[in-house]
């Protein structure tokens, strides 16, 4: 199945034991688009993300990433797929035994033949992008929550992946850091043509960066469309979210 969508989810339903987490979920993500997945706690946002990352097994013919059914990927295909993705985990998920710069440089060391000095320079440059160059030689345990997030973003973009997943990137950041993070995400999209899928609750961030919004409620998509339409939506939950978030 060859389409011009980077991600396509078709009729994905997931249940854990008796409890249905996702019901008949379908959506697409186009290249170069920033798609924000919204929804309350337990609405299935993280479950969708884990299916897209193939961390949870998806049924056949339901989840396509880079036009490939993730359910049928061989180990080599999966690795190749992962090399084209960056994942920015909510809690950073940095390796504690490595310094920040070692964490950021790790994918380059493992997957490229670039010389060590260039790898180090690239890692520092990416840390510079997230304003974390001075913390390069610190260990993750020595970083604050916001610094951890920025280091995690630097690691996620180190390979210039065409597809970036961000799980709650703004949670715990002050408004100024959040705005600069959003600006960086916009730069990555504009200058590298990166496709970004974000799970976030930060309304200010959504208003700044989102091209498209997918709104989940109890495992079902209740809204899918451009940000402009979401802001004018008649759906109560969507109205309530943006109304409260924008202080209206």
């Amino acid at each position: 199945m060859e389409t011009n969508n980077i991600i396509e989810v078709k009729n994905l339903s997931v249940a854990f034991e008796e409890h249905e987490v996702l019901t008949d979920v379908s959506f697409t993500v186009k290249p170069g688009e920033i798609t924000v997945i919204l929804g309350g706690s337990g609405s299935g946002k993280t479950t969708i993300l884990k299916h897209l990352l193939n961390l949870y097994p998806s049924p056949n013919n339901t989840t396509y990433v880079f036009n490939k059914d993730v359910a049928g990927l061989s180990e080599e295909e999966q690795t190749e797929c992962y090399l084209n993705m960056g994942v920015f985990y909510q809690n950073g998920a940095l390796i504690n035994s490595l310094t920040v710069i070692e964490n950021v440089a790790l994918p380059l060391e493992q997957h490229t033949n670039l010389p060590d000095n260039l790898i180090k320079e690239m890692a520092l440059m990416k840390l510079g992008l997230v304003n974390l160059k001075d913390a390069a030689h610190l260990y993750p345990a020595q970083l604050s929550g916001g610094m951890l997030k920025r280091a995690a973003l630097a690691r996620a973009i180190i390979m210039d992946p065409p597809l970036l997943f961000c799980d709650e990137p703004g949670a715990g950041l002050d408004p100024v850091s959040l705005a600069s993070l959003d600006q960086l995400i916009l730069d990555l999209k504009r200058q590298l043509g990166m496709t970004i899928v974000m799970v976030t609750h930060e309304v200010s961030s959504i208003l700044r960066v989102a091209d498209k919004i997918i709104f989940l409620q109890e495992g079902k998509i209740i809204f899918e469309g451009p940000k402009k339409e979401a802001l004018q939506s008649n759906i109560e939950a969507v109205q309530e979210f943006f109304g409260k978030g924008t202080g209206n």
Partner: peptide
């Protein structure tokens, strides 16, 4: 990409 730009700066 970022590797190429880093090399040029280097």
């Amino acid at each position: 990409d970022s590797a190429g730009t880093t090399a040029i700066h280097h």
